[in-house]
Design a protein around this nucleic acid. Structure first.
Length: 175
DNA sequence: TGCCTCTTCGCCGTTACATCA
DNA sequence: GTTGATGTAACGGCGAAGAGG
């Protein structure tokens, strides 16, 4: 997918920080810490709107459907180890996700613990790309919002951004 | 004040899966 | 139907930095 494709998605994205912190100065140079602090200092807001498509439901690929989406954006079929961070990020909700996921894993019909590979839909990728254009890193709140909008787990959003940053780092600079 | 532990994050290298020629 | 190449989601480990004791 190229940038041109993104222009045709009809997606509208808004990102902003609704805090009174107008200086934009944070203690840490480490983006990780910066966003950690940012999450405490202000209340970043993220607005995602799908103006050109209906719900994702029309675009969900078979893999996504296989994962089963709930209202919190949590996938039901996830590995036992993948919830390590989200537990601490989201508190009780993530504990629930972990509980459900382990249940599903136990019931894995073919008995294999191999990971299923999620393929993001075009709409999901477009939204992530659009968000990435604004910020190559996400603070926890933005991550939560994005995950909710995309019906993905926060961890999946986080991984996507990680991989995306890695791709950018490996891309030859074009200008 | 300095040290230690814990927590959270991003980065890196790698693995594993899905798709295509 | 099989195979190798490619793209990428996901994992595990590591170090950095802040918070709290």
């Amino acid at each position: 997918m190229g940038i041109d494709d993104l222009c045709n998605t009809g997606l509208v994205l808004g990102l902003g920080i609704s805090s009174s912190s107008s200086t934009g100065e944070y203690k840490s140079k480490n983006p990780a810490k910066l966003h950690h602090q940012l999450g405490k200092i202000g209340e970043p807001s993220l607005t995602l709107t799908l103006s050109g498509t209906e719900a994702f439901d029309h675009n969900i690929n078979p893999v996504n459907n296989l994962y089963g989406q709930d209202s919190g954006g949590a996938s039901s079929l996830i590995s036992n180890v993948s919830v390590k961070r989200e537990r601490s990020e989201m508190g009780s909700e993530e504990v629930e996700i972990e509980r459900v996921s382990s249940r599903v894993s136990d019931e894995d019909d073919d008995g294999s613990n191999g990971r299923k590979k999620l393929r993001l839909t075009k709409a999901q990728s477009a939204l992530l790309e659009e968000s990435f254009k604004h910020h190559s890193t996400l603070n926890p709140k933005e991550k939560q919002e994005l995950a909710r909008e995309l019906k993905l787990r926060p961890r999946q959003v986080e991984v996507w951004f990680q991989n995306r940053r890695a791709r950018v780092a490996n891309e030859p600079s074009c200008s």
